[in-house]
């Protein structure tokens, strides 16, 4: 790994006071070479306080904007503060901070711009409900088709981004950057994407934020976003860097 690479771990958190402290502490212990930033997405519990006491930097959104906008706020922060790499880690403790080093390495060595954690690249015992698995397979298939590169897990939030990649999230206002449609945008802009296997744990506490209605609407939203992205002009990497 290159010297003096500044890495920011972005942890979007919405009412995760029960978990976020442990997650921040684990990130600091297991990946001492990073800074931790918690984006409190308008929580009504003590998420911001817990995160701050655990030693993270905290940005509090004035009201709930959704996980994706919280992540983007973190990326904008990282971009302005001159970080080289950002790592997105969920606040619910499902991701394993020890794997951050592995996730970051291809970006730090400047071989890739985006490294995506995949639950399915290697069987590490993560169990997905059948219906959800079908959905993820479908999204993965479609994303792979459009990108011309095999992607096995499109919704995993454990990812590392190089400066050019997270800079795009920060500069362009397009809600479609979400999940794997974001990968499509980055891929079309010429950025290099790599998937590596990661371990995803069961949630430590609390409940998943995905509601039944959202799960029902999501496939339609996904396809619509994908079509919209493909119908638009390719985005270019800001700053005019050739790639």
């Amino acid at each position: 790994m290159k010297e003096n690479v500044r890495i920011l771990v972005v942890i979007p958190a919405y009412n995760e006071a029960a978990n976020v402290g442990r997650v921040v502490a684990e990130v600091k212990n297991e990946a001492h070479f990073v800074d931790a930033l918690v984006i409190d997405d308008g929580s009504i519990d003590d998420t911001a306080g817990v995160a701050a006491r655990a030693g993270a930097m905290v940005v509090r959104l004035p009201f709930n904007l959704g996980m994706f906008e919280a992540v983007r706020a973190g990326f904008a922060f990282a971009h302005r503060s001159g970080y080289d790499i950002t790592v997105q880690v969920d606040a619910d403790g499902q991701h394993v901070p020890r794997e951050i080093a592995e996730l970051v390495r291809p970006v730090a060595e400047e071989e890739y711009d985006v490294v995506v954690g995949s639950r399915y690249l290697e069987d590490r015992g993560y169990k997905t409900p059948l219906l959800r698995k079908c959905g993820i397979r479908f999204f993965a298939w479609l994303t792979s088709l459009v990108l011309g590169q095999t992607i096995t897990d499109t919704t995993c939030g454990f990812r590392a981004y190089g400066r050019r990649a997270f800079g795009m999230f920060a500069s362009y206002d397009a809600a479609e950057f979400k999940d794997s449609v974001g990968l499509v945008i980055l891929g079309r802009a010429g950025l290099r994407i790599k998937e590596i296997p990661v371990t995803v744990r069961e949630r430590i506490g609390g409940r998943s934020t995905i509601s039944a209605l959202k799960a029902l609407v999501y496939p339609f939203e996904f396809v619509l976003s994908l079509v919209a992205v493909l119908a638009r002009k390719r985005l270019t990497v800001p700053g005019g860097e050739a790639c």
Partner: peptide, 14 residues
């Protein structure tokens, strides 16, 4: 950047 309890962006709605 190290926001203690209750200060910082007090939410509009909650």
């Amino acid at each position: 950047f190290n926001v203690p309890l209750g200060s910082g962006g007090d939410s509009v709605s909650q």
